[in-house]
Design a protein around this nucleic acid. Structure first.
Lengths: 217, 217
DNA sequence: ACCTGAACACCGTTCAAGT
DNA sequence: ACCTGAACACCGTTCAAGT
C-alpha cells in the first residue's frame, strides 16, 4: 500500500532544481540568487528558468519582461536598506542609511549597475526616500534643498560603489602600476596622489565622503 | 581611356555604407554614432558592421572585444569634457568641468550608463582627473581629501544624470501622477515635496547641487 | 491557471580561408 | 594586412497547445 502521490522515486536524477510552486516572488528571489552567483551578464531568462526547473517561456507568465524582472530585483534590493528610527538625530539617520545603502550594493553583485540603470519606483524605495527627506527637513533644509540633496547623497554612494567596481586582483595590481608610472610632467597633480590611490582603503575614503557631505548639510 | 579603378558604376545600389578604410578609430567613431542613434541596447556588433559596410567578423581585427569597444567609447566621450585654463580660480575650474561633464553625458545617449559601468582609464580621462585634483589642491585641500573628493564630485554628476534618465513623456506624466497620489500617511515627508519633484527643472536642481558641493569645499 | 514545445529573429565570437 | 563565409553556442520573446 505505498502512497500514491508520494515523492518521485529516489533513482530519478533530481539534482538541483527543487521546483517550488512558481510565483512572481519566487522568480525574483531566484533571479537575485542567480545574479549574486553569475553577475549581470550571466543573468539570462533561460538560465533562470533552468534553476527553477522550468522552461524559459514559463517565466513570462509571472513577469512581463526581462526589464520588469530587473525592476523587481532593484526593488528587492532597495528593501534591504536599513531605515533608522526617526527619533534618532538626523545626522545619525542619514549616516545609517548611506552606510547601509553602500553595504547592500556591495553585497549583491552588479547591483549598483542595476540601481544606476533603473531607479526603483516601488514602495521600498519610496520608504527610503521618505526617511531621507524627513532627515533633511529635520536638519533645517527647505523642501527645495532637500529635493536636490537626496540626489547629491544617493548619487555619491552609487557613484562611489560603481567605480570601486568589480575589480579583480590583477586589475588592481595593473592599476597601481599604471598610477606609479604616471608621467609626472603630464599629470602633475595626479602623480602626487598616486601613492594614495594605490592603496585606497575604500572604507576610509567612503567615510570621509560621507562625513564631508553630512558636515556640509 | 576610362580610369581603371574609378568609383563603382552608378547603377549599383550603394546607399548608406560609405566604406572608408577601416581602422580602430573609424570603428569607434561609427560605434558612437550608432549609440547616439539606437541606444546601448541597439549597439550590436552586427549592426555596427552593417553601418561600416563590412561583415561583423571584420571588427575583431580592429578591436578585441565588445567590452574593449565600450571602453574605447568611454574614452572618446571623456575626451569631450572641457578642461579649463589652470590660471582661472579653482572654483570656476571645477564648475566648468562638472557642467561640461553633465553636458557631455546628456549629449550622448546612454553614455552615463557606459561611464558608470566602466570608468575610463585612458589619457583623456586622466587629464580630466588631473585638472580636477589640481583644482582641489589649489582650493587648499590635502591630497587625502582631494582623492576622496573627486569621488564625491564625479559620483554626484553621473548619479544625477543617470536618474534624470531616459524618461519618455509618458513616464514623466505617470511619475507625476504617482507622486501626487502618494499616501500622505505613509510617506509624509515625500508627499510634502511632491509638488517640487513633479516639475523638476533639472537644470536648477543640478546647479543647486554643484553650488552646494563647491561651497562646501 | 499555469506550464511546455517549438519556433523566430536575433546575439557575440571564432576560425579557416580568401585576397 | 585586412576581410569574408560559415559556423557555434547562445540570447529574449511569442504563441499555439497541453493539463
Amino acid at each position: 500500500m505505498a502512497p500514491r502521490n508520494a515523492v518521485p522515486p529516489a533513482d530519478a536524477a533530481d539534482a538541483a532544481p527543487v521546483r517550488v510552486r512558481l510565483s512572481r516572488a519566487a522568480v525574483v528571489d531566484a533571479a537575485l540568487d542567480l545574479l549574486d552567483d553569475v553577475g549581470l551578464d550571466g543573468l539570462t531568462t533561460r538560465r533562470l528558468a533552468d534553476r527553477l526547473g522550468v522552461k524559459s517561456a514559463s517565466l513570462y507568465y509571472h513577469v512581463r519582461d526581462k526589464g520588469q524582472l530587473l525592476d523587481l530585483i532593484a526593488e528587492r534590493i532597495a528593501a534591504e536598506i536599513e531605515i533608522p528610527d526617526p527619533a534618532l538625530p538626523w545626522r545619525t539617520r542619514l549616516d545609517t542609511m548611506l552606510t547601509s545603502l553602500r553595504q547592500v550594493l556591495l553585497a549583491h553583485r552588479d547591483s549598483a549597475v542595476i540601481m544606476a540603470e533603473r531607479t526603483p519606483r516601488g514602495p521600498a524605495w519610496l520608504a527610503v526616500s521618505d526617511a531621507a527627506v524627513r532627515a533633511l527637513l529635520d536638519a533645517g533644509r527647505s523642501p527645495e534643498e532637500a529635493a536636490a540633496l537626496i540626489g547629491v547623497l544617493v548619487g555619491y554612494v552609487t557613484g562611489y560603489v560603481l567605480d570601486s567596481g568589480p575589480w579583480t586582483e590583477q586589475e588592481l595590481a595593473e592599476h597601481s602600476r599604471r598610477l606609479a608610472a604616471l608621467p609626472r610632467d603630464r599629470y602633475p597633480a595626479l602623480a602626487r596622489l598616486a601613492p594614495l590611490l594605490t592603496d585606497p582603503d575604500p572604507e576610509a575614503q567612503f567615510r570621509f565622503g560621507v562625513d564631508f557631505l553630512l558636515g556640509a548639510i
